[in-house]
């Protein structure tokens, strides 16, 4: 597609999005702090938003951007509830490792 007079392929944006999503997945798998894991989930959601906007532009269809707005809203709701749960847990104890939170494993 042509952007600002020069040619940029949509696949560049998609590859960047894939790299960001993968880095977010690395963070979720490797990091121990529950807050940082939530941050990495936000990173993955952002990567997906980039994919949606890229395809929206590539196909000349606004629905991708509308879906991105929905996705931003849902991500905000997710962050609010996730942080509220963490605050509730932090009230009673200090969690340095998500693996400590295993009371519900049955």
């Amino acid at each position: 597609m042509t952007l600002g007079g020069s040619h940029l392929d949509a696949s560049w944006f998609l590859i960047l999005s894939a790299i960001l999503f993968t880095l977010g997945a690395v963070g979720v798998l490797v990091r121990r702090n529950p807050l940082v894991i939530l941050i990495c989930i936000e990173l993955m959601l952002n990567a997906v938003n980039l994919t949606l906007v890229t395809f929206s532009r590539q196909l000349g269809n606004l629905e991708g951007q509308l879906f991105t707005l929905m996705s931003i809203t849902v991500a905000a709701a997710e962050a609010v509830v996730g942080l509220a749960i963490l605050v509730d847990i932090f009230h009673t104890r200090d969690v340095e490792d998500v693996d400590e939170l295993s009371e519900m494993k049955g």
Binding site: L3, G4, L8, F13, L16, E42, N46, N49, L50, V53, T54, S56, R57, Q65, T68, L69, I72, T73, A75, A76
Partner: peptide, 21 residues
């Protein structure tokens, strides 16, 4: 990512990204 959204002519998504996110 906001800059990339602008590049992809998604102005409103850019503003929402900066303000909300």
């Amino acid at each position: 990512l906001g800059i990339l959204f602008l590049l992809l002519s998604a102005q409103f998504v850019f503003v929402a990204q900066i303000i909300v996110y």
